[in-house]
Nucleic acid binder design. Structure first.
Length: 493
RNA sequence: GGUCACGUGGCCGAGUGGCUAGGCAGAGGUCUGCAAAACCUCGUACAGCGGUUCGAAUCCGCUCGUGACCUCCA
């Protein structure tokens, strides 16, 4: 197995991956806040980390992948809890809102063929752990309590530990010299301080008892508490979207140091943003397209619908650390490319038996490309490069299948490798799946057999008008007929 | 305003000092009754201007442009 290299946001460089415990990887990725439907940007992020998770497993690591569900709700600008707000608007119990959007989130992950994480902890089920962590931070002197709320003492932490701002590239001096334009009711000693426990106002629905009174945990605490619980004080990889670097991840690091004196993660991995119209997709400003709109085509931004696997493939064609611009043209290109690749996969399975006797140039070429594909996957999960290698072997596969290359040009062992590696990369690592556009029932298959048989007879008697009439009619019905040497086949377009 | 990215051929998108990225679109050809598919061949692109170097899309500087973070956000 080749060495895995990954880019660490913390050090800003790519280095060889060395797990803390040989053979094992602990990975924590910040999951969604379930107060609304997931949007496509979230999906890209979780697909990126899914590929990372799958790659690690493919390389033989035993991975514990923790991806949380944040159902406590973070504070809104106006001080209102997100979950509580959603509840009031929809006349639902807070936990009902949470359950509803948790379900739809998980359904979307299933649609995108994102494998479930090893553990999917929920913030509301870890209130005790969060309270304990607040207590630990208080005990260590990195937090202070005011009127039933507890704030992290960023100033003290920054001065004493010297790690604050490292991840996000903040300059501590700038943070500390920030003007103190605190709101009147703001109890924080410094703008850079942040709440780790908030006193619940009477109208606040989600609330728990704590040593500081009734309240709810702060913005960033659930990740610190749950990653520690399931992966230990220090674990291998912490991931999330690039927009979480600050303040979320920076504060998470601070909390973990504050509680246990050590860094939570060795490697920090951040996925980049999905762009629409050249700008970040965002729920708040309307520059967004939902997954369902993308599938159905019901959006002013696209001309038609695209299947989940097309979208997944589209995302894989860009590196996870690059921004990716969604355009209709790019999606159409991805759709064609994805189908071509899957068609090649099907062709592998119906290739004539290889009859090579000794290794040919073609054998070497195919094996070389497969090796490169794996190698490039291991270079910071470079899926676009790895995919390019598969596209290099695609014409060879198709030529073997179509007869342009005779079967004696490859060894039986090459076909075995081809089948194994393609299968592993396409399905196990990239997480693609065959989409049976046909989803043909037995009835449809029987009908099509009959129609193609009738057309075959017409062709045999050189009745071209009838043959073409059938083909054109089927095309209008969305069925493409392909004539080959061994008869005609069909597929839904 | 501060911090940080990015600007690649018609579109998307890899690539970080010399070696073909790849996909889609487009052109020509083979096959085919015609078509589709498949196969073969074809594109010297790297924002602009300077500099370093034997050699730069790749390093440095400046200019222009775009975006992200700084506030909930994957």
């Amino acid at each position: 197995m080749p060495t895995l290299y990954l880019y660490n946001s913390l050090t800003r460089e790519k280095s060889a991956f060395e797990p803390l415990h040989p053979g094992h990887v602990g990975m924590y990725v910040c999951g969604p806040t379930v107060y609304n439907d997931v949007h496509l940007g979230n999906c890209r992020s979780f697909i990126s980390f899914d590929v990372i998770f799958r790659t690690l497993r493919y390389l033989g690591y035993k991975v514990r992948y923790v991806r949380n569900i944040t159902d406590v709700g973070h504070l809104l600008d106006d001080g209102e809890d997100r979950i509580a707000k959603g509840a009031r608007l929809e006349q639902l119990e807070p936990m009902e809102v949470v359950q509803k959007y948790t379900n739809s989130f998980l359904e979307m992950m299933r649609i995108f063929n994102v494998s479930p994480p090893s553990i999917e902890p929920r913030a509301t089920q870890h209130i005790i752990e969060q309270i304990e962590m607040v207590a630990a931070i208080l005990e260590n002197g990195y937090a202070y309590e005011i009127n039933g709320s507890v704030y992290f003492d960023t100033v003290r932490f920054a001065r004493e530990k010297g790690v604050y701002g490292q991840l996000s590239g903040r300059v501590i001096e700038d943070l500390l010299q920030e003007t103190r334009d605190l709101k009147k009711q703001d109890e924080k000693r410094h703008p850079a301080d942040f709440a780790i426990w908030m006193k619940a106002e009477p109208e606040h629905i989600m609330r728990w008892n704590s040593p500081w009174g009734e309240g709810f945990p702060g913005w960033h605490l659930e990740c610190s508490a749950m990653s520690t619980k399931y992966l230990g004080h220090t674990f291998d990889i912490h991931g999330g979207g690039a927009d979480l670097k600050f303040p979320h991840h920076e504060n998470e690091i601070a909390q973990n140091y504050g509680a246990c004196g050590c860094a939570p993660a060795k490697y920090w991995v951040h996925g980049n943003m999905l762009l629409l119209n050249g700008k970040k997709m965002s729920k708040s400003d309307g520059n967004t397209i939902s997954p369902y709109e993308l599938f159905s085509g019901e959006s002013p931004f696209i001309s038609r619908g695209y299947s989940p696997m097309t979208v997944r493939f589209f995302m894989l064609q860009a590196h996870y650390r690059s921004t990716l611009d969604i355009t209709d043209e790019a999606l159409q290109a991805a759709d064609k490319g994805y189908r071509r690749l899957m068609e090649a996969w099907k062709n592998i399975q119906r290739l004539p038996a290889p009859a090579g006797k000794q290794e040919s140039d073609l054998d070497r070429e195919i094996l070389g490309q497969l090796d490169l594909a794996v190698e490039e996957l291991c270079d910071d999960f470079n899926t676009p490069k790895a995919l390019a290698r598969l596209f290099e072997v695609t014409p060879r596969i198709n030529a073997l299948h179509g007869g342009q290359i005779p079967p004696d040009q490859i060894l039986p062992s090459t076909l075995v490798r081809l089948r194994e590696t393609m299968s592993a990369l396409l399905f196990d690592v990239f997480g693609l799946a065959e989409e049976d556009q046909g989803t043909a029932s037995a009835t449809v298959n029987a009908l099509m057999d009959l129609i193609l048989d009738l057309r075959g007879r017409a062709r045999a008697s050189k009745d071209w008008p009838t043959a073409d009439r059938i083909r054109d009619g089927l095309k209008e019905a969305g069925i493409v007929v392909k004539d080959g040497p061994e008869g005609s086949s069909w597929s839904a377009s």
